[in-house]
Structures are given as C-alpha cells and as structure tokens.
Design a binder for these strands. Structure first.
Lengths: 228, 228
DNA sequence: TCCACATTTCGATTATAGTTGTAGTGTCTA
DNA sequence: TAGACACTACAACTATAATCGAAATGTGGA
C-alpha cells in the first residue's frame, strides 16, 4: 500500500532525547567513544551502548574498533545534513532566545569539550602552540616537540604521568564553532586542569562554557601570546 | 546544558508510523480532512485527531476550519523539505526496487486519491472537461456549467443526488505527481464510480493505482477526447 | 426543531521502549 | 598473569505513548 514506508524508521531513531543528544554530539564530525557520548547525554554507558547499537543498525552511525575503545561517528554527510535541517526547523522557543543566544556566544568563546578546552580559546591556544613550535600536526594527532617538552614541563605539567594514562596523549579534535582542530587527549586534559588550578579560567554555571579570569588574560598573553 | 534540546521534539513527531503516513499524505500540498487522513493511515478518526493535535502543537501542520470540516496541511515549505530529505535517506530496500519503481509508474499514470481519480488520468480528464466547457475553475473549486450539467446527465450521473450529499460537490485537488489540479468532491467520486461501473477502469491489486481497460480506452477517447 | 456527520475529549487498556544493575567479554598495561 | 578499563548482553522494572470505545461538541441540512 504505502510506497515510502520507512520514512518513520529513520525519524524514530532521532525522536528520542538521548539519541538526539548523541547524534548532535557527533555532529562535530569527530569520533567519540561510547563513554564520552554517555557522559554528554547524561546516561549510563549501558544505555548509550543500547542506543548506539540501534543507530548503527539504522545506518546513521559507524564504528571503528581501536583496541578496547570503540570510536563512533556519523555514517556520512547525508546524515549530518538531515540533522542540520532538523536544527533549522526546531528553533529555540522565543521566550528564552535572548538567554540562549548569549549562551551560544559564551560557548563559541570558550568551552569544555568532554575533558579539554574547545571554542575560540581552545583553537587559539592550539594555534599558538603550533606557531611556537611546541606541537606539530600529524594526520589525526599532535606531536610534542623537544622544545614543547621543555615548555610544558616548565609550565608545570608532568608529561610522564600524562603519557602513562591509558588513553591517547594528544590527538586533534575538530571544533564545531571554529571549524579548526584543537588539542585533545590527556595532554589537552592536563593543560585545561592546570588552567583551572592556576585560576586562569572558571566554569560558567550550568553550561559547558568557561570564562577567562583577569589573571588568565595576563597569563594567556604572557605564556601563549593570546589576547582574550 | 544542551543548547539544542528540541531537535528530538520534531523528530519525535515524525518517528511514528501513523504520523509519518499522515505527513507523507500531506506532502501533496493539499488540504486534507481528518477523516481522509485517518483513512490513509488506517487508523480511527479518534487516533488521527490525537496525532493531528500533536502535529499542530509541534508547528508541523496547520488547520483551517470550514464549516464542520477541518482542513489540515503542512505548516510550510520547510517542513516539506525536511520530509523530502527523509525520503532521501530512507531508501527503499534494494530487493524490491524494481517492483517499486514500476508501482510508482502505475501510480503516476492513474490512481485513486481518497475517493476520486488522480494521476495523469485524473488531471487529463479534468483538463478535458475544462476545455470542453463542462467545468469552470474557481479559486478552490470547479463549477459545473449548464453545458456540463447536460453532459454529466447524458453520461449517466444524477447531479441532484450528488449535490445532496453532505460534502463539497466539486472542489479542486492538487496532484503530487502531475502538479496540476484535478476534480474531487462528490462529482469526482461519482465520475470515478461510474467509470468503474462502465468497466473503463479496474483496480490494481494492493496499491491505489487503477488500470484503464481496452473498453475504457475507447470510452475515454470518445467521451473526453483523451488518448490513454 | 431534529438528525446526520465531522471531529474532539475522556478514560481505560495494551504494547513497547528506555533505563539500569549485574554479569560477562575482550583489551591494555604493569 | 592480574587487574583496570571500555564496552556489551541479559533481564527486570518502569514509564509512557498509541489505540480505541463511548460520549460530547459543533455544524449543516431537511
């Protein structure tokens, strides 16, 4: 009877808050692990795994196995385009548009991306470290140069500890607002933690944005030559 | 926390078979009544009403009240575009693509649209009746001319009975495959029924398509000057 | 006025999907 | 090899959405 029966199948997969959050999280084009996605959607890993298997079954998401990690990404650009058209017709309620637009602004400026810095600040920092010769860009990773090792150590990071962590040390992470790569991995995490410890940045309540303090402005200028 | 929380809201509305059927039915751009849509989705009017109220609430569908009827249509072109992108990423299974394409072909040729004729046959018929001066086009309706009254009566239709029916007599219906209007309403229904009675058309099993018989080819040529 | 009809509202039932705890598999590192 | 960790499979519970019958509302026509 119905020639287009499976329109609903795809929409069904998008029509659930947890899955929608997972999918929008994947819209940055990066690979994400199941744990990351669970964290972002505020659900347990089991639930995330359950949803991810459904998304894979529905050909919206791909997996790549790397060791004990499983990296998930959107299946193709078509899916991303569909998601974007959804964002287009699901406008934020008028009432809180002012608050929201300022929140988006804050997020674009500087935010945490899982466990490292993203947004303009994250991208600028990475750029600066590349220019200074502390990092070099590989295909999917950044490599710390000898000069960089010296710098990070002087700055107060223990690279040995960071390298011992059971996760990638310094991979590249694509920024949805800036469309540039920024530093992720345990080095990215270590740097961000240190910025928090130094009081250069503070968390903005209830959203993922972070704010650079006055102390931070001076610090970022001196250490990384960045004007915030 | 999440800046784009209501992506899921829209998808949720599409992610259910009955609602998806309703929405795809509305993709022809026409207004449809709740009963029509219930019929198409094979659900009771109560259920259809339930879903339609949700669709209206979600700004995917509009209503216009005309008397005791309520005419539903897609809220805007944006929604139609989203639906089309869905059709794009929910491809029919490869296995039955051949069968499907031939089915689509049949549907484009001639089909029933709720209770009257649509497709190329429906549009050609309407065109022919306009050219012959049996009908005149109004904004949303067709009007039967005196010449037309004579013709329809000679052809074997009882216009008095048709006019007494508690529904619109002869409104214009937009064709999704032909992008032209065709005749609907009780007159459209009466004509189609008569074609069936005369043995000019027969139902194609399991889909909404109809087939013109050899007898019908002669009949349509003589009465309406149409080459099928 | 009364009746027929289109549609909605309400209430109850049924089905199903989302969630999580527990347990298990596989992989990496010390 | 042991233990930490990422992830999945299974099973049970819970929440919620879809469905429909019955009844109500509103409209048009006789």
């Amino acid at each position: 009877m119905n020639i287009n029966p499976n329109v609903a199948e795809v929409a069904f997969l998008l029509g659930e808050t947890s899955r929608a959050t997972i999918l929008t999280s994947l819209m940055d084009g990066r690979f994400h692990t199941a744990s990351e996605l669970a964290f972002m959607a505020a659900i347990t890993p089991q639930t995330a795994s359950f949803h991810l298997s459904k998304l894979i079954e529905g050909n919206l998401v791909n997996v790549e196995k790397h060791g004990r990690h499983r990296y998930f990404q959107l299946a193709n650009g078509e899916v991303a385009r569909i998601l974007e058209s959804f964002l287009a017709i699901s406008p934020p309620p008028e009432v809180r548009s002012l608050k929201q637009s300022s929140q988006v602004k804050l997020l674009r400026e500087a935010r945490t991306c899982y466990d490292h810095l993203a947004g303009k600040l994250g991208v600028d920092l990475t750029e600066s470290m590349l220019n200074a010769g502390y990092l070099e860009k590989e295909v999917r990773d950044f490599v710390v140069t000898p000069k960089g090792e010296q710098f990070f150590t002087d700055f107060g990071l223990d690279l040995c500890i960071l390298k011992r962590k059971r996760r990638s040390f310094s991979h590249a992470c694509l920024d949805w607002s800036e469309r540039h790569h920024h530093l992720a991995g345990s080095l990215g995490h270590g740097l961000m933690t240190h910025f928090f410890e130094l009081g250069w940045i503070i968390q903005v309540p209830s959203i993922r944005a972070v704010k650079v303090t006055d102390k931070g402005k001076v610090g970022f200028k001196q250490a990384f030559n960045i004007n915030v």
